[in-house]
Amino acid sequence: MPELARHIVIDHEREKLLIDGTELPWIISEDGPIPSVEPGDGVARVTVTLFADKVEVVGTPKLPAPAGRDDRGDIRTFEGQGALIARKRDTRADVQAWRDMSTKPRFIAMYDAALAVFDAEEANRG
């Protein structure tokens, strides 16, 4: 089973991405790696766009389980334990706008899950 990376360095000054001290040897998109949580805040996630001559996709992406709020009030997949969808400060209108702009089925499903959280909260207030 693959191991969790121990240390990822996103060096914007040198335009390098290092994983456990080893520089990623492939070209990365101009917008670079995007961390989804701040360092030191549990297990961090990093999104990286790599370029390739050929991409093979096997199977279909798994859709997230129902979303929920985490202990900080952010909306995450897997009932508040998974990937970040929206921060506590984001509104239903924000998430709806992101969904309307998205073209990827996986992201649309995540936004739909977050919208369901907002709808359930509104129903509980009413």
Rank of each mutant, 00 (worst) to 15 (best):
L24T: 01
L24K: 01
L24R: 01
L24A: 08
P25A: 09
P25F: 02
P25I: 04
P25R: 09
P25V: 07
W26V: 12
W26F: 13
W26Y: 12
I27H: 12
I27V: 13
I27P: 03
I27E: 15
I27F: 06
I28E: 00
S29G: 12
E30K: 08
E30Y: 01
E30H: 06
E30R: 11
D31S: 07
D31A: 07
G32T: 02
G32Q: 02
G32A: 04
G32R: 03
P33M: 06
I34E: 10
I34M: 10
P35E: 05
P35S: 06
P35T: 05
V37C: 05
V37L: 08
E38I: 02
E38A: 09
P39G: 07
P39T: 03
P39F: 02
P39W: 01
G40W: 02
G40D: 04
D41K: 09
D41G: 01
G42K: 04
G42I: 03
G42T: 03
G42A: 06
G42R: 06
G42E: 03
V43R: 09
V43Q: 08
V43I: 11
A44N: 12
R45D: 13
R45Q: 12
R45T: 14
V48Y: 02
V48P: 07
V48L: 14
T49K: 13
T49H: 14
L50Y: 00
L50T: 00
L50P: 00
F51W: 13
F51Q: 14
A52M: 08
A52T: 13
A52N: 10
D53R: 15
D53S: 14
D53I: 01
D53V: 03
K54C: 09
K54M: 11
K54D: 13
V55W: 03
E56P: 00
E56T: 14
E56N: 09
V57S: 08
V57Q: 09
